[in-house]
Amino acid sequence: GKMTGIVKWFNADKGFGFITPDDGSKDVFVHFSAIQNDGYKSLDEGQKVSFTIESGAKGPAAGNVTSL
């Protein structure tokens, strides 16, 4: 299901970062391709987001990332 969290950091040049889930679980990798907006796909440190957990090739990653 949907989770919420805070963006820990995001490197716009490399197109990835990490989200710290509100439930205290392990930080989740986020790739820019998972960001659900029409414009420039980037996130800001400290931004609140909702997301799902998808299993990627390198382990769990955030999917369906939407800013709240």
Rank of each mutant, 00 (worst) to 15 (best):
T52G: 04
V7M: 03
T66W: 07
G46N: 06
G46Y: 06
L68Q: 09
K8Q: 05
E54H: 07
E45A: 14
I53N: 04
A57K: 14
F16L: 05
P21R: 04
T4C: 06
I6E: 06
M3T: 10
G5T: 00
P60C: 05
F51I: 02
T52V: 12
T20R: 12
F18A: 03
G63N: 12
K8C: 06
F29D: 01
K14P: 02
Q36M: 14
I6C: 08
G59A: 06
E45H: 14
E45Y: 14
V65R: 01
G63M: 14
S67F: 14
D27E: 11
F18T: 03
K26H: 12
P60F: 13
S67W: 11
Y40V: 11
Y40H: 13
F51S: 00
K41N: 07
K48E: 07
S25H: 07
F51T: 00
G17M: 01
T66H: 10
K41L: 09
G59R: 10
N11C: 07
G17A: 01
D22F: 09
Q36W: 08
S67R: 14
M3N: 09
K41T: 09
F18V: 05
K41A: 09
A12M: 13
F32Q: 09
I19V: 04
Y40W: 15
K2Q: 14
I53F: 08
K58P: 09
G39R: 09
T52E: 10
I6Q: 09
P21V: 05
F16Q: 03
D13C: 12
G24M: 08
D13Q: 14
T52K: 05
T4H: 09
D22N: 11
K2G: 11
G15I: 02
N37G: 15
D23Q: 07
F32W: 14
P21L: 08
P21Q: 04
S42V: 14
D22V: 08
G46T: 03
Y40M: 12
Y40N: 12
V49L: 03
S33P: 03
G17Y: 01
F51A: 01
G15V: 02
K8H: 09
M3R: 08
A57C: 06
F16G: 02
L68F: 07
G56Y: 13
S25A: 11
S55E: 13
F32K: 12
G5Y: 00
W9F: 10
A62M: 01
V30L: 08
F32A: 10
F32R: 13
E45F: 12
F32H: 10
I53H: 05
D27N: 09
V65H: 01
V65T: 02
G5A: 02
P60Y: 11
K2R: 07
N64D: 11
I6Y: 13
G5Q: 00
S67C: 07
N64A: 10
K26M: 12
H31E: 03
V49D: 00
D38V: 09
I19R: 00
P21E: 02
S25N: 10
N37L: 13
Q36I: 14
V30K: 00
N64P: 02
L43S: 01
T52N: 09
N11E: 04
G15S: 03
P60Q: 12
G56R: 10
V28Y: 05
Q47Y: 05
L43N: 01
T4V: 11
S50F: 09
K48Y: 12
Q36N: 12
E54Q: 10
A61R: 13
A61N: 11
A57S: 13
K48W: 10
G59V: 04
A57P: 14
N64H: 10
F10E: 00
D22Y: 09
V49H: 01
H31D: 03
L43R: 01
